[in-house]
Design a protein around this nucleic acid. Structure first.
Length: 265
DNA sequence: CCTATAGCCTGACGGC
DNA sequence: TGCCGTCAGGCTATAG
């Protein structure tokens, strides 16, 4: 699930709950999800420190450990965070639990283990080294940056939007939504797009991501013209009412409106 | 540069 | 009820 808007909501959740408290204990059950760090090291880097701030880039959440370094969380398809109080043992899919001195704990849960937990010294360096593209919600991500991100690419626009080294943060779901809002066919070729289309796509992209965040990624609070709540077999287009098409683009299940998304340039 | 494919891991769902 | 195949919103490695 967690794409850029979801991770932003998780970031704000963490910001409003788990910062500035001493970590009394750390439980890890995620050996195969740990990225370049041992369970032991991670534990000792976290314990007795507190979390100071967070940053998000694309689908990655970085949590500053007072003292030094950053905890990097990637959520894969099934990752989530929960801050709560209680003595209960971590549930089956809790990969990381931070117990705070105030009796609360923060759980990073991930059913399918497709995410990652890591430690990085320098966030910008990590982004660079991981080859992540720009974050489309960063203030400096203007039309020129978007053009730059698409420059020299071929293939489908949907594939390009989901390519994390072109742009960081868009996944299958939001790619569909952005293309729907831009009234563009998901198989349109990137290098065939008219400047005007790229401009419109840039607007749709920013609008979709920020609206989703405003709605706290709750489909019930999405604008009425969003595709996402209808993105299911048998779902119909919120604009024209026709049944949505289901197909594969760049290997991913894709829903679109054959009538409203005819444009390919 | 691109695509398609398989694989990582687990749970939900539909068909029999 | 149980078993089995399929599929899922991430990402990588491989081959072409």
């Amino acid at each position: 699930m967690p794409e850029l808007p979801d991770v932003q909501v998780l970031k704000e959740y963490l910001d409003s709950t788990a910062l500035h408290q001493r970590i009394a204990d750390v439980t890890i059950d995620a050996d195969d999800m740990l990225e370049d760090v041992s369970s032991r090291t991670l534990k000792s880097r976290l314990r007795k420190h507190s979390l100071r701030s967070t940053r998000r880039h694309g689908k990655h959440l970085f949590v500053e450990i007072a003292g030094d370094g950053w905890l990097r969380l990637h959520f894969g398809m099934t990752g989530e965070l929960e801050y709560s109080k209680g003595e209960r043992e971590p549930g089956a899919h809790v990969r990381l639990r931070l117990d705070f001195a105030n009796g609360f704990h923060l759980d990073y849960r991930n059913t399918r283990k497709l995410g990652q937990i890591g430690l990085v010294d320098d966030v910008d360096e990590y982004i660079e080294q991981a080859g992540l593209g720009p974050d489309p919600l960063a203030s400096e991500f203007d039309l020129a940056s978007f053009r730059q991100a698409l420059a020299g690419r071929r293939g489908t626009i949907k594939g390009a939007l989901m390519n994390q080294s072109a742009l960081a943060g868009i996944g299958n779901i939001y790619a569909d939504e952005i293309l729907f809002q831009a009234k563009l066919h998901p198989k349109a070729k990137v290098n065939r797009l008219k400047p005007k289309t790229v401009e419109q796509l840039h607007r749709s992209l920013q609008r979709v991501l920020s609206r989703a965040i405003e709605a706290r990624v709750d489909p019930e609070r999405f604008p009425d013209d969003f595709l996402l709540p209808h993105r299911d077999a048998g779902g119909s287009c919120p604009r024209c009412g026709r049944e949505l098409q289901k197909t594969k683009v760049s290997g991913r299940t894709t829903y679109y409106c054959a009538s409203d998304q005819r444009r390919r340039t």
